[in-house]
Design a protein around this nucleic acid. Sequence first.
DNA 1: GATGAATGAGGGTTCATTCAT
DNA 2: GATGAATGAACCCTCATTCAT
Lengths: 210, 210, 210, 210
Amino acid sequence: MVNSKVRDPERTRQRILDAATEEFARFGLGGARVDRIASRAGANKRMLYYYFGDKDRLFLAALEARYAHIRSAERALELEHLEPLAALKRLVEFTWNYFLEHPEFLTLLNSENLHKGRHVARSRRVRDMHSPLVETLRRVLARGERGGVFRKGVDPVQLYISIAGEGYFYLSNRYTLSQIFGRDLMAARALSARSRHITDLIVQALRRPA
Amino acid sequence: MVNSKVRDPERTRQRILDAATEEFARFGLGGARVDRIASRAGANKRMLYYYFGDKDRLFLAALEARYAHIRSAERALELEHLEPLAALKRLVEFTWNYFLEHPEFLTLLNSENLHKGRHVARSRRVRDMHSPLVETLRRVLARGERGGVFRKGVDPVQLYISIAGEGYFYLSNRYTLSQIFGRDLMAARALSARSRHITDLIVQALRRPA
Amino acid sequence: MVNSKVRDPERTRQRILDAATEEFARFGLGGARVDRIASRAGANKRMLYYYFGDKDRLFLAALEARYAHIRSAERALELEHLEPLAALKRLVEFTWNYFLEHPEFLTLLNSENLHKGRHVARSRRVRDMHSPLVETLRRVLARGERGGVFRKGVDPVQLYISIAGEGYFYLSNRYTLSQIFGRDLMAARALSARSRHITDLIVQALRRPA
Amino acid sequence: MVNSKVRDPERTRQRILDAATEEFARFGLGGARVDRIASRAGANKRMLYYYFGDKDRLFLAALEARYAHIRSAERALELEHLEPLAALKRLVEFTWNYFLEHPEFLTLLNSENLHKGRHVARSRRVRDMHSPLVETLRRVLARGERGGVFRKGVDPVQLYISIAGEGYFYLSNRYTLSQIFGRDLMAARALSARSRHITDLIVQALRRPA
DNA sequence: GATGAATGAGGGTTCATTCAT
DNA sequence: GATGAATGAACCCTCATTCAT
């Protein structure tokens, strides 16, 4: 709050973006309150419009930032430099852990889809971010096929959606699932059990039949 | 519309519930408008409060009804009377098709989880509905293990979450995924490809290693 | 205020319309405050939207009502039953007096024209109101021409605009004109002098040259 | 735009004043936006306050400038050097054409009157500008009376208000009048017809009865 | 002279809910 | 059981103005 008096536009902008991300994640786009975002950011409400235009553009900015973050973390995995099976396991585990540690990303995506993806539709940036991911995965699969460890004909997009879906559904729907199955899905043991389950499932599914 | 003037309490209640389900599915709990629900139901807004108390209780009623519906459809599959592998495939395909044909169920669940499952937490009914599902799946798995077609140690809850998650993520996030991967995930060919992919993946993952 | 608690929709609507007319007249469309309208009407702000939709539609409703009022008063003059010269004088005096007694009408029209007539453009009602006025004036002029008291070729629309304009400009711009000419244009003597001036001017201008 | 970077105080001031005049004319005092004025002037918003103090004083400056402009153009007519009838016609035609070519002047005056002339009331300059106009007109009328072409007893202020009013009302209210009378009052033929109508009307009204 | 960043009050509008009938 | 009218709090956004540099 001391620093908020010092004129530092870039920090102000970032504080607003961070506060917005948290607010959108907690309450969804519709449930998010501009007043709360501003006050959490220690900024005047007007600044939010000054930097981002309106609530929708602020939402898109938050979403883009989170997409950029996960894709950047993925690139840091350097899957291309690993053996195919190791690369696959690493991606599966990374994805699970990322979702676990960044629940805001899941709710942000849910909001965007509730709104039929209308923000992301206007963003070239987001689409451009994803070609490298698919290409990397495609090359890992190809190497695995050639090396005889993966079965043939697996589509990298389908595979990625499966890897993500296995963690996404579990974590995004943790409240209802915990309730209907009468288990605390977020207990430490449950989480590590799920992690193993997913890795096993994906690896088994990809492995070339004997 | 003719009948809407006749006093038929049960029909009025049902019309409100149907309208609410659609509204909550399209806009989420926060984005749903009580006025729109009433007007779509052809009912006075006051009736909504008369029958359901308030917006939250109406939401819970809609959610419970959808849970009851899918669980009832699942029971109709009579998985217990099928061979383990056939039963597994049938459940996988049913789940995919149900999600595909009932997108409102997915958004209802998303809303409930955005709100940390606070409605479902108060509902005994919902929890009670799910024990039979888990039991059925457990027995199918046990038969498959004994028969040597499934590998051992698969937890029925983990399996169900995987089966559901494979379809859920793809369909619930169809807007963002279509955009970031540059594909129309809802095209007919894409849908049948996903269906095959999921069945293959789950069956491969469950099969006993040679 | 006592009555405001009694449920009388028509009165509530009328109170809002009256308050709105006054507010729009005093401050213009842009300067008018919805809060003030509601509080002057002794109504909840929400009611304003309940009855009129939004601020623009409320403005149009006020404008239509004032147009209807002056046209109705004009019809009551029964110009058709008077001698042409008497009818002309009567219309001139009426118009002056009406503008003098209903300054809100002038400012309402100014606002509408500042906004390029966009409300009135959507209103069939307003246009339909005016055909009778033009027709009446046309017939008075025709009778005057035939009777040799008016010169020929006077367009009724041009004439009406002149009659109105003579009073309109004086009254609508009374503040600036009083200031720049150093006279109180609203003093009783000034007003009656203007009235005589306008009647003389119009009558002289219409009279058939000897 | 190149020059806007060069420090030229007088030009900056003038650009702001021009932008303000246009903005106030289009949207009225209340509807005008300080941001738009600054951005159209290619100036920083702060400069507007630096040069003019606040929005109201900027409005007054714009109004004064327009008053000065029309009065200056009137003086250039040199009515004193013309025959009375010619002088009258020239003033009538000038006034019509000026209003036609400077619609911003009309809306500026409307705004000032909506605000009860409170800006102009504080301005000595504006009042001082107008004495010469009245004096000139008085002398033209006197010459006309003596020469037997004008009738007696016409007040120059009343006459000026009539001359102005005939054009003002037509042009200022062109949107509503076009709509209610079902004619495009701004069509070329309509404009020249109005010009002739006004000249005829004023000349007829002033002419000494035979 | 000039700039971008910041402010707080208030703008029109919409919300879930309840009252009187 | 059912209705239209009414409520007050809060929503997103915009305003003229001023601060720090």
